[in-house]
Amino acid sequence: MKQVPDTATLIRLQPGAKQIETQGIKWVINPYDEFALEEGLRLKERWGGEVVLVALGPARVEEAIRQGLAMGADRAVHVLTNDAVELDVWLVAQALARVCREEGYDLILTGKQAVDDDQAQVGPLVAVALGLPQVTVVVQLAIDAESRRLRAERELEGAIEVVEAPLPAVVTAQRGLNEPRYPTLPNIMKAKRKEVRTVAWESLGLEAAPLVRIESLSLPPARPAAKILTGDPEEAARELARLLREEAHVI
């Protein structure tokens, strides 16, 4: 589970910075990870077992973890990083995979991507690191505990693909998989007493340099002002059609 800026956040950059300005940001659970957590909770309600939340990031991530525990996760592991560590998706995936290996697993669920950097790589790379089958962009999931297989529907462009895979596996969640529950007040209070194991990044011994580095960050160019057509409706319509054809190239 990743903590990301609320999608309504106004992104600001200092010139030359390789990270966005984090001051004043409202942090939330990555929405796709909420679908993953909800699915885990439903599977637990159906089959029993335990839902362990794994998150990576600085101390502020604790709040997202508590939120996840309040939704109903049983306990959590927080891989605590600091600003000095330069991370890429492969390093993150290796760290998460290491925690998963320590904890043990029947199924690893995560969002199909994080809404901040949109890389959509961590889930698949965790599967690679653990040598597990992966099923991505899942909109429906069924588990057969006896045969230890899963059956999933994946969302493709204009089609649904149905796949099967043996457990354990990595599944990444797409919008539509479920409707995440509200953390209720009794659960919020209970979450305070649930265990959060903190693992210092340094203790994982992942000293390799990142494979991918951010070279620079810049804001998208400001949108050009809209063109407003006025006057006689017939002429305006003709002009609109001309613009759509000759300038926008859409008709």
């Binding site: 604790e62 709040e63 508590r66 939120q67 309040a70 509200y182 953390p183 209720t184 007040l185 919020i188 209070m189 305070k192």
Partner: peptide
Amino acid sequence: SPEERQIRDAVRQF
């Protein structure tokens, strides 16, 4: 406190 924020946000979400 974190709980106070969470409780507020949970009711807001509802």
